[in-house]
Design a binder for these strands. Structure first.
Lengths: 178, 178
DNA sequence: TAGATTCCTCTACAGGTGTAGAGGAGGAAG
DNA sequence: CTTCCTCCTCTACACCTGTAGAGGAATCTA
C-alpha cells in the first residue's frame, strides 16, 4: 500500500532527524518514490503529520495481548519489543511532544496499549487504583524513555535479549507491587 | 544580557511550537528584537540550538540543592517546580530528543540535577545501586513526562499547590523504598 | 475496442529559512 | 576632536518547503 510506504518512511525520518526532518520531499526520497508522491497523498503538512501519527498508532495496536497468567512477563516482553523497535518508539515520543501543541493528534493516539496498561493497573486491586495506575504507567514510560533518550542512551542490557526481558520483568514486578 | 534574551525566547518557542518553530527570525520576533539579531549572535542554526540547550542546562542548574533531612520532600518540591515551569520542561524534552541525533548536545546537558538524582539513589544503600538509581530516575522522569506530555495532559493535582507536592512526595517515597 | 475513471508524476510558484556581509551608531582610546 | 573598535541593524540571495494543478499512464466498464 502506497500510503503505508509513505508513512513508514515518515516514521524513520522523524526518528532520525526529528519533526524538522519531516517534509514532503524528504519522505519521497526516503521512500524511494518520485518527487511529489507524498504531496499527492498528503496535500498539506498537517495531513502528513496526522498520517504519520495514525500509522504509529496502528503499528502499536498490533503489538500485544497481555497474558493474564504472566502479567509482568508479557508486559516486559512488550516493553522489550519497544526498545528493539527503537525508531518507532523515538518517533512516538516526537509525536507525543507534537500532540502537546496539536491536540487533534491526541485523539489519534488514544486507546493505544499504553492506555491498556493503565486499565490493567486499576484491576490489580490497589487501594487507590487511579493513582496506582498512573504511577505504574509513569514508571514504565519513564523506564523506556530513560533507556532510549535519557542518560546518554542505551543503559542496561541489550534489548531483544533474555537478560533484557528479565531485567524489565523485575522492574515491572516492583512497579506492580502495592 | 542579549544572548539570554534570545535563548529564553528560543525556549518559549520550542515549548510552544516544537523544534520546527525554532528559526532565527521567529526568535527575533518572539524576543521583540530587530530582524537579524538572532542571526548575528548565532550565525548557524546549529549554534542557535546549542545556545538554547546551554541556556536550559544553566537554568536547571540553579534549581535545587537537596536537603539531606528531607530527601523525598526536597525532591518532590523540585519536581513540582518543573511541573510549574511547564514550558521549560517541555523544551527540555525536545532538547533530549534532539540530542538523540546530535550527540554534541548530550555533553551540554550532562551534570544536570537529574544526574544528581541518580547519584543520590546510589547512596541510599540499595543492594544494586546502579540499577536502583536507574529505576529511581526512570520513575521520576516518567512521572513528569506522564503528567506533562502523556495521557491528555495534566493528570493529578494542580502543580504548585501543596497537594501536588504531597502527591509527588508519596510517589518519591515509594520509589526510594528498596 | 472506446470511453471514463483513478492514480500517479511532473512542474510551477509564492513564501520561508539559513547564512553572509555591508555599513552605521555609539562609546573607548589616543 | 579624531580614530578605532565593538555591537548592532539591515539587506541580499541561494536554497528549501508547502501547496496547487496540468497532464499522462494504467485500469476498469461497457
Amino acid at each position: 500500500m502506497r500510503r503505508d510506504v509513505i508513512t513508514d518512511a515518515a516514521i524513520q525520518l522523524v526518528a532520525e532527524q526529528g519533526m524538522r526532518g519531516l517534509t514532503h520531499r524528504a519522505v519521497d526520497r526516503r521512500a524511494g518514490l518520485p518527487e511529489g508522491s507524498t504531496s499527492a497523498y498528503f496535500r498539506t503538512r498537517k495531513a502528513l503529520v496526522e498520517g504519520f501519527v495514525e500509522r504509529l498508532a496502528d503499528l502499536e495496536r498490533l503489538d500485544v495481548v497481555p497474558d493474564p497468567d504472566d502479567v509482568a512477563g508479557s508486559i516486559a516482553r512488550t516493553l522489550d519489543s519497544w526498545l528493539v523497535e527503537r525508531n518507532r518508539t523515538l518517533a512516538r515520543y516526537a509525536a507525543m511532544l507534537e500532540a502537546t501543541h496539536h491536540p487533534e493528534l491526541k485523539s489519534i493516539m488514544a486507546h493505544s496499549p499504553r492506555e491498556q496498561a493503565t486499565a490493567l493497573a486499576k484491576m490489580l486491586g490497589h487501594t487507590d487504583p487511579e493513582r496506582a495506575g498512573a504511577h505504574f504507567t509513569a514508571f514504565l514510560e519513564g523506564l523506556l524513555f530513560y533507556r532510549l533518550v535519557g542518560a546518554g542512551s542505551t543503559v542496561g542490557p541489550e534489548p531483544g535479549t533474555p537478560e533484557s526481558v528479565r531485567d524489565l520483568k523485575d522492574a515491572v514486578e516492583k512497579a506492580l507491587r502495592p
